[in-house]
Amino acid sequence: MSGVEFVPLSLTPLLIGVFSAVACALPGNFLLLRRQALIGDAISHVVLPGIVVAFLVTGVVTAWPTMIGAALASLVAVVMIEAVRRLGRIEPGAAMGLTFTAMFAGGVLLLEQSDTSGVHLDVEHALYGNLEALIWLDAVGWESLLDPVALAGLPDELLRIALTLVAVGVFLWVCWRPLKLSTFDEAFAQTLGMRTSWIGLALVVVAAIAAVAAFDAVGSIIVIAMFICPPAAARLMTNRLEIQITWSVVFAVLSAVLGYILAGYGPLWLGLDNAVSAAGMIATVSGLILAACALWAPCRMRSGAPAQ
């Protein structure tokens, strides 16, 4: 395919998809090992009321109020889950389900009650995202990558998700040892004097930031899928954390690229006219990767030894 067509139409959505997938998959590895995989699910549901409240307060749907609202909502959700669990002595799964459904219901109700006809804000958009629409209109081909005027017209989402990815990477790099220790042996980490509860909270906050930034660009369904599927598939490949994270990044990139291509061009190959949802297809591809790993990966069994 020529750069004239590819760069303006597909390069930015593809990059945004890849960055979102990796930014979610990285913290997802630790959440998976800590049995908190569904935090991503909960966060991606409660983002909706956050966005709606941000809209009601500011009256606009622009990036920063939206992201701040979403981040506050996920913080409220984490606190509320903890509060329900402790105060009511409810098992964590039920506390989580209760919190995110109630907050999501509140968000939908607020959305229906408020006048949002003039702006682009609806539940479907929040779920599917709008990856295909993030095109780079100023580009005319590969040479635009070196053209400062055209670069200024890049979608803001690309910059935000790239920064988020860097932030997530830096967090993992800085907190690598405490994170790894407290994930695998919390008691030992505590005897070394680490504040394991703070580390856990920091991880959830980083996951929430990644989720909110990715959500802004690609919708909640990719967020949930990327938090869980690539790390889970990577978990079946190896017993070493470093290798697992490498695999999860590979799987995340693979799902994003393959999913985007299949969604954009798959229907054309099948003789249909229109593309299908890229977000949904990326999630589907990640699921297929996980299924393949669950069937054939070397460390898929519980004993941990490679299957003979």
């Binding site: 899928a225 938090f227 889970a232 297809m281 999630a283 699921g287 669950a294 898929r300």
Partner: peptide, 22 residues
């Protein structure tokens, strides 16, 4: 597999839902 139930739930949830949206 060695995956815990929460990971299995999350994987099935997101993949089926994503496929449904497709």
């Amino acid at each position: 597999t060695r995956l815990a139930e929460d990971a299995a739930i999350g994987a099935v949830l997101s993949v089926f839902f994503g496929f449904g949206i497709v």
